[in-house]
Design a protein around this nucleic acid. Structure first.
Length: 571
RNA sequence: CGGAGCGUAGCGCAGCCUGGUAGCGCGCUUGGUUUGGGACCAAGAUGUCGGAGGUUCGAAUCCUCUCGCUCCGACCA
């Protein structure tokens, strides 16, 4: 491809609305343009990366035995009503009507459609297992789209759905996908972790997320320093504390004027915050209020709590509600005399003579012990933190990373097959609901995550398997016939060798070309200029490492070919 | 959804408070000089000032409504 015949509109300045690096760089490198909030066009250069990602995914899915199909973006409401999600999905589901006033939605995911296909076409266990996948544009009307391709409303996703007769089969399908996902992100050249995840509202027994490690990641994950355990912090298990000997104190009311936060109380009473207990009031989706006790220096994990309470959603009560249900102002709540149901983090079982709020302005109790009030239930309710002991091995400690969720594998069970009556006959001639799994990869998000992980102050350097082009031939001065001819020869040689190459044949000053080259980050740059050409040489620079090499005009194409092959083979 | 802010040339912004000929930088066009890390000189082109309504002799500027976009809010007891 010749630059002068291509569309690669680079920007010198960052667009005002781009917050994160990948968004800024994808805009500046002419990969994407915004059309509306969370909705982007993929310009030619960006599309090349997207297509590369898709192809890697496609190859690995095929290799794992999945079969590609393509389902429609427009889904009839009928199917969604059948699964019950037309009501449940909420505002993220973009709904619209056709000219006949029939209701539709833009598919945010395709369990309904795929289940409909399978129930209509698969009748016997002999046709199983099956795994259908597609690479397709999804639409989720996110509350707050942001970060460019990282969290758009319209985005490209690979989604796969497996169908098995029983749980063992489903587990095997799951395992295949898990391995395929590891292969995919490995091939992309990304630093990632696969972590245990909460399966969220979708339900199901097991779930793993694939996280690309990056500072800007929206998720926090823990991994063990000593073993393979890794989990989303939402899910990360915390071990119960060591039992302590309870030294029986007597609850004593103390004045704590103007001390509302844990820090203020700890400071005022001259105690570490780990000797304080905080009381949070949580409102469940059923409208009930519950008091939650946590050690002062710990933080609530709402996901864990919602599981314990058996509800989908919980929210911290606002100040007014707190006062209404406890009679006390925020900052001075405590379990003594609490009328609400009380649940406590298991860490309290390792505490004695702690401090709690007195349900009265400017007052706390010291010397409080578990026997002094009633706790409905103790459970693991807190957020894991750095240094927590590993729940799976002895001696391992938690490390915490930030990650970008690029893939998620779920075991769905029979939730959809039962709701939609997708059954096959087993070898006894009995109808059985299919056991399903679903498996997603955010295509655009993975490319964005790769940029988050691979950039410097001058621009991006996507790993070669994802880069739009593999090599760039940069002509310092296209008006110099000798230089231009040498560059053209190299360009042609690379094309003949099957290398994806961009020829920067623009009549621009060298500075501009170098800046653009760094910005767009094509992995291998061949600079052809009069200076080195005098010795019959050109310069080969690797964008990511900065490694520089002088090579003869005749040798450079072969060398590039080798480097490309090596990079693609390093799986 | 709550809170804050922004819509002025392709991009980044000033002008608005205090109403009176719409500006700057980059980019773009033409000519010339330059040419191994975002050059210089000269001459140009480009705007429904997001939209609608109002106040006024006069509105980018003041008022009302509206649309779009961005940021913050999900741990604080």
């Amino acid at each position: 491809m010749r630059y002068t015949q291509y569309l690669l509109p680079t920007l010198k300045e960052n667009p005002a609305d781009a917050e994160v690096i990948s968004h800024q760089l994808m805009m500046r490198a002419g990969m994407i343009r915004k059309v509306a909030a969370g909705i982007y066009s993929y310009l030619p250069f960006g599309l090349r990366s997207i297509r590369k990602m898709e192809q890697i995914v496609r190859e690995e899915m095929d290799r794992a035995g999945a079969i590609e199909c393509l389902m429609p973006m427009a889904n009839p409401a009928e199917l969604w009503q059948e699964s019950g999600r037309w009501e449940k999905y909420g505002k993220e589901l973009l709904r619209f009507k056709d000219r006949k006033e029939t209701e539709f939605c833009m598919g945010p995911t395709h369990e309904e459609v795929v289940t409909d296909i399978i129930r209509n076409t698969v009748k016997s266990y002999k046709q199983l297992p099956l795994n259908l996948y597609q690479i397709q544009t999804k639409f989720r009307d996110e509350i707050r789209p942001r970060f460019g391709l990282m969290r758009g409303r319209e985005f490209i996703m690979k989604d796969a759905y497996s169908f098995d007769l029983d749980d063992e089969g489903a587990a095997a399908s799951y395992q295949k996908m898990y391995q395929a996902y590891r292969n995919i992100f490995q091939r992309c050249g990304l630093k990632f972790r696969s972590v245990e995840a909460d399966s969220g509202a979708i339900g199901g027994s097991s779930s793993h997320e694939f996280m690309v490690l990056a500072e800007s990641g929206e998720d926090a994950i823990v991994s063990c320093s000593g073993c393979e355990y890794a989990a989303n912090v939402e899910k990360a298990e915390v071990l119960p504390p060591q039992a302590v000997e309870v030294v029986n104190g007597e609850p004593t009311k103390v004045e704590t004027p103007e001390c509302r936060s844990i820090e203020e109380v700890a400071e005022f009473l001259q105690r570490p915050s780990a000797q304080l207990v905080k009381t949070l009031i949580v409102e469940t989706d059923q409208g009930a209020c519950v008091a939650v006790l946590l050690r002062g220096d710990h933080e609530l994990n709402e996901i864990k709590l919602s599981h314990v309470l058996g509800c989908d959603q919980i929210a911290l009560a606002d100040d007014d509600l707190v006062r209404k249900v406890t009679g006390a102002p925020v900052g001075y709540l405590g379990p003594l005399g609490m009328k609400l149901k009380v649940v406590a983090d298991q860490a309290l079982q390792g505490m004695s003579n702690f401090v709690v709020g007195a349900n009265q302005v400017d007052s706390h109790f010291t010397g409080v012990n578990l026997g002094d009030f009633k706790v409905e239930q103790f459970a693991d309710l807190r957020q894991a933190i750095v240094g927590d002991p590993c729940p799976r091995c002895a001696g391992g400690k938690f490390e915490i990373w930030r990650g970008i969720e690029v893939g998620h594998v779920f075991n769905l069970g029979t939730k959809y097959s039962e709701a939609m009556n997708a059954t096959v006959l087993d070898d006894q001639g009995k109808a059985r609901a299919l056991v399903m799994g679903c498996y997603g990869i955010g295509i655009g998000r993975t490319v964005a995550a790769a940029i988050e992980q691979n950039h410097d102050e001058n621009g991006m350097f996507l790993p070669l398997p994802l880069a739009p082009f593999q090599a760039l031939v940069l002509i310092i001065n296209p008006k110099d016939d000798t230089v231009r001819e040498a560059a053209e020869a190299i360009y042609q040689a690379l094309l003949d060798l099957g290398v994806e190459v961009l020829l920067d044949d623009r009549d621009e000053r060298p500075g501009i070309k170098f800046k653009d080259a760094d910005l767009v980050g094509i992995p291998l740059r061949i600079t052809v200029g009069a200076r080195s050409l005098k010795e019959g040489n050109v310069e080969l620079k690797q964008r990511a490492s900065g490694e520089l090499q002088m090579l003869s005009v005749d040798a450079v194409a072969q060398r590039v070919r080798q480097l490309v092959s090596a990079a693609l083979a390093a799986e």
